Simulated assay, not measured.
Amino acid sequence: MSNALGVTTVVIVGLMVGVEFAVAFVLNRIFAGLPEDAGQLGRAHGGRMLGALMPVWYIGSLVLSAIWAAVAWGDPGTNLIVIAAALLIVSVVMSVVLLVPINNRAKRWTPENRPADWKEQSDRWDRYHYLRVAVIIAAFALLTAALAAG
């Protein structure tokens, strides 16, 4: 049971890391290269689409990690799972406190109603997102190591 749970958790977290990495280093660069209105509209659409999906993915990853830690308690690598779960908690807190407030504004922006500082707000979101990506990559690496240790 623990191995199946571990594999499932690593796959779910790995897919989340891949999506968030692609947002940070691929999609946002594509949007930045488009004409101003198109890039801003692309970011707004992405914010609406991923803003609906990612909370479930982040919380689900955390729950799976916590269950895996409980099931594997005392096994080799359990401490890695616990640290990874703590990092996932950090990522959720970062999301709620730093990223979601900006995203909730940005996903409603259009060329007609966006604020004058929309680029600065988008850049701030990007900087927070880079940090969050680093946190979830670390969690993914720890979960992978725990799976290998088990």
Results as ranks from 00 to 15, higher is better:
residue 49 M to S: 01
residue 18 G to R: 05
residue 85 A to Y: 01
residue 15 L to T: 10
residue 16 M to K: 02
residue 40 Q to C: 07
residue 64 L to V: 07
residue 113 N to G: 13
residue 102 I to E: 11
residue 108 R to M: 07
residue 63 V to W: 09
residue 24 A to Q: 06
residue 149 A to C: 04
residue 14 G to V: 04
residue 70 A to G: 06
residue 110 T to G: 05
residue 4 A to E: 09
residue 65 S to L: 12
residue 20 E to G: 03
residue 133 V to N: 02
residue 103 N to Q: 14
residue 24 A to K: 05
residue 35 P to V: 13
residue 134 A to K: 11
residue 138 A to W: 05
residue 68 W to Y: 09
residue 72 A to V: 08
residue 4 A to C: 03
residue 9 T to R: 07
residue 126 D to I: 13
residue 5 L to R: 05
residue 48 R to S: 11
residue 95 S to K: 01
residue 89 I to L: 13
residue 20 E to K: 02
residue 48 R to V: 12
residue 104 N to Q: 12
residue 113 N to Q: 10
residue 135 V to Y: 01
residue 139 A to Y: 02
residue 150 G to Y: 15
residue 144 T to A: 08
residue 93 V to G: 03
residue 49 M to G: 00
residue 38 A to V: 14
residue 126 D to E: 12
residue 100 V to L: 05
residue 125 W to G: 00
residue 110 T to K: 04
residue 52 A to Q: 01
residue 111 P to L: 12
residue 32 A to Q: 07
residue 79 N to C: 04
residue 142 L to P: 00
residue 75 D to Q: 10
residue 49 M to W: 00
residue 6 G to S: 11
residue 138 A to N: 06
residue 45 H to E: 09
residue 100 V to Y: 03
residue 133 V to H: 04
residue 28 N to F: 05
residue 59 I to E: 07
residue 105 R to I: 09
residue 81 I to P: 00
residue 13 V to N: 05
residue 108 R to Q: 11
residue 21 F to K: 13
residue 84 A to Y: 02
residue 102 I to L: 15
residue 50 L to R: 00
residue 74 G to V: 15
residue 84 A to L: 04
residue 112 E to T: 07
residue 5 L to H: 06
residue 68 W to E: 00
residue 81 I to N: 00
residue 105 R to K: 14
residue 114 R to P: 15
residue 140 F to W: 14
residue 19 V to D: 01
residue 74 G to L: 12
residue 14 G to R: 00
residue 106 A to P: 14
residue 126 D to C: 04
residue 105 R to V: 10
residue 122 S to M: 08
residue 86 A to L: 12
residue 93 V to T: 02
residue 2 S to E: 10
residue 104 N to W: 10
residue 3 N to I: 05
residue 67 I to T: 14
residue 66 A to F: 02
residue 81 I to R: 06
residue 29 R to N: 15
residue 120 E to D: 14
residue 52 A to G: 13
residue 89 I to P: 04
residue 57 W to Y: 10
residue 105 R to E: 13
residue 43 R to A: 07
residue 31 F to R: 01
residue 84 A to E: 02
residue 131 L to N: 07
residue 8 T to M: 10
residue 37 D to L: 12
residue 137 I to K: 01
residue 110 T to E: 06
residue 2 S to A: 14
residue 69 A to M: 07
residue 126 D to S: 09
residue 87 L to H: 03
residue 91 S to R: 00
residue 63 V to G: 13
residue 65 S to F: 08
residue 16 M to L: 11
residue 53 L to G: 06
residue 98 L to N: 07
residue 126 D to H: 13
residue 74 G to P: 14
residue 87 L to E: 04
residue 96 V to Q: 07
